Simulated scan of single mutants.
Amino acid sequence: MDLITILLIVVGGVLVMTMAASVIVIGFDSISKARTELRHQIRESGPYLVGLGVVYLLNKLAHHLTTTLSGIIGVNITDTLVAIEGGLVGQLQALLPMQAAVWYFTFAYVFGFAFVLVFPIIAYLLLPTQRHLKELLVAYMINYGAGTVFYTLFIAYGPRRALPTEVGQPMFEQFPEIMTLTAAINTSSNVFPSLHTSMAITVLLFAWWTREEYPRWLWISAVFVLSIVVSTMYLGIHWLIDVVAGVILAVASVYFARWFVAWADNRNVPNPHTSLETETQD
């Protein structure tokens, strides 16, 4: 199966999941009411949407460069991760040896991850205030940027590569075509920290803050995020240390994102003293 076919399957699946979540979480009435203000909301959040697109594009364009640079200056910490953590991931796989677990966690890792990143962008775009969407997009940008830096500075192979006799790779064994997709997005030496974890936890933090606007999204996202985090280890891709680092990165990204948006919004608020002076002069 070629890359285009795999992408079409993933996009189609995520589209169906997003449409279903829109009905369950947002509701037809809220969607209809928000449509009248959609142009204004897009205009307000436009720079942040464009910024995320630029960061993602630059990240993809610089992928070969950063991989080459990592080979020159990167520190290989794989042995350190093995020494600290040992066969924990292998033990996790042994606890859930069922075929159903492979299917479930593969679904969470591929489809669930893309869904939890896309849906909140649509949901927050439909809110009267765009603050949450701006903060989310900035947090995404920080996650991607920090991930690029860490992946350049540190070379680390996941459990399936470092301990092939103790840790399996059930997703790639059951669905070898997915390797085509993952190879196009990332390299096997980029595991510290886990961006799947950091991005998913970022979404969950925002789901908590917007629980009054979207109470159902908090519970839906919690199930997906927990599944995604566990899947990164169960599938032999990440160490627990990568996951912990991903959680820390998520918290830091959200903190700085909220600070930045507050600072940017305050800059755009007219100074009342300046306005008063202008009126007096007139």
Results as ranks from 00 to 15, higher is better:
160 R>K: 15
175 F>V: 07
174 Q>P: 00
163 L>D: 08
174 Q>A: 11
176 P>S: 15
145 G>E: 01
168 G>E: 04
156 A>S: 15
144 Y>D: 08
145 G>M: 09
172 F>H: 10
163 L>N: 08
180 T>F: 04
152 T>V: 14
177 E>Y: 13
168 G>I: 05
159 P>I: 10
169 Q>L: 03
172 F>E: 14
143 N>K: 02
151 Y>C: 04
175 F>E: 14
153 L>H: 10
158 G>W: 10
179 M>Y: 13
154 F>W: 13
170 P>Q: 06
153 L>R: 07
145 G>Y: 05
156 A>H: 09
159 P>L: 14
161 R>K: 09
166 E>Q: 10
181 L>R: 00
171 M>T: 05
149 V>W: 00
171 M>Q: 08
153 L>W: 07
179 M>N: 12
179 M>C: 03
154 F>T: 11
161 R>W: 12
152 T>I: 14
168 G>S: 11
170 P>G: 01
176 P>V: 15
173 E>S: 12
169 Q>N: 13
170 P>N: 04
177 E>C: 00
177 E>I: 06
147 G>E: 04
175 F>Q: 09
155 I>N: 07
169 Q>K: 09
174 Q>N: 01
150 F>H: 04
161 R>V: 13
175 F>D: 15
159 P>F: 11
169 Q>R: 01
166 E>D: 11
162 A>D: 07
160 R>V: 07
147 G>T: 02
177 E>R: 03
165 T>K: 03
164 P>L: 03
159 P>A: 13
153 L>I: 13
160 R>M: 08
159 P>H: 12
166 E>F: 01
174 Q>H: 02
175 F>Y: 15
181 L>C: 01
146 A>E: 05
151 Y>F: 15
177 E>W: 11
167 V>E: 10
168 G>H: 03
174 Q>D: 00
173 E>T: 15
154 F>N: 14
164 P>T: 06
158 G>P: 12
178 I>K: 04
159 P>S: 15
174 Q>L: 02
148 T>N: 09
144 Y>P: 00
152 T>A: 13
176 P>D: 12
156 A>E: 13
168 G>A: 10
148 T>F: 02
174 Q>V: 00
165 T>L: 07
169 Q>C: 08
179 M>I: 05
144 Y>R: 06
153 L>C: 05
178 I>P: 02
163 L>C: 11
173 E>D: 15
177 E>T: 11
170 P>V: 05
164 P>H: 05
156 A>C: 15
144 Y>I: 15
159 P>R: 11
156 A>I: 09
146 A>Y: 07
154 F>A: 09
153 L>G: 08
158 G>C: 14
147 G>C: 00
150 F>W: 08
181 L>V: 06
157 Y>Q: 06
178 I>H: 08
162 A>G: 02
170 P>C: 01
166 E>A: 08
153 L>P: 06
154 F>R: 10
177 E>N: 05
179 M>F: 13
175 F>T: 13
178 I>E: 06
143 N>P: 07
152 T>C: 14
157 Y>R: 04
169 Q>T: 09
163 L>F: 14
147 G>P: 01
163 L>M: 15
157 Y>W: 06
145 G>A: 06
178 I>V: 14
154 F>P: 12
169 Q>Y: 09
143 N>V: 05
166 E>P: 00
143 N>Q: 09
171 M>I: 07
175 F>K: 11
176 P>C: 10
144 Y>C: 09
149 V>M: 08
169 Q>D: 12
146 A>V: 12
